[in-house]
């Protein structure tokens, strides 16, 4: 178990556009530089957002990894829910799941409208992804 290094990789990936470019071109060779288990490597390469959340990756780091793979926000949230349903509770870290009716139902309770609807723009590993356009 090397959650620290999974998160360290994602932290560095989120900050470094050049690393994003290299990673999107050859994921396994980039991951070789980190002390990861096979389970962690597989979850990253897939990418299996639900598994990574289950392993304990902090959502503030994970959400940018999802965005890098073109995963839309509501889909990102659903993948985490699916991960918990499939793999069980978060193994470690501070991101326990406590239950929530969802933004659309919550907004309705508050008398607000919401344009948030789940979508499924999955990255199956074949799409020509581009590095993010954040600051370098």
């Amino acid at each position: 178990m090397s959650l620290y290094y999974v998160q360290k990789f994602l932290y560095e990936l989120n900050r470094d556009e050049d690393l994003q470019t290299r990673y999107l071109a050859e994921r396994l060779s980039v991951l070789d530089a980190y002390d990861l288990t096979a389970e962690e490597t597989d979850a990253l390469v897939e990418p299996d957002i639900g598994k990574l959340f289950h392993l304990g990756v902090n959502g503030q780091i994970l959400m940018h990894f999802a965005a890098l793979h073109g995963i839309e926000w509501q889909d990102y949230l659903q993948r985490m829910r699916d991960g918990i349903a499939t793999h069980g509770p978060v193994r470690e870290g501070v991101y326990a799941v406590t239950g929530y009716e969802g933004t659309t139902a919550h907004a309705a309770q508050l008398g607000q409208t919401s344009g948030a609807e789940p979508t499924r723009d999955r990255d199956d590993g074949d799409a020509p992804l581009q590095p993010r356009r954040g600051v370098r």
């Binding site: 959340f53 902090n58 959502g59 949230l77 991101y95 799941v97 929530y100 969802g102």
Partner: peptide, 11 residues
């Protein structure tokens, strides 16, 4: 708030 988790939106 419960940001960037499945409970995102809970307040």
């Amino acid at each position: 708030h419960w940001p960037a988790t499945p409970d995102s939106g809970k307040i």
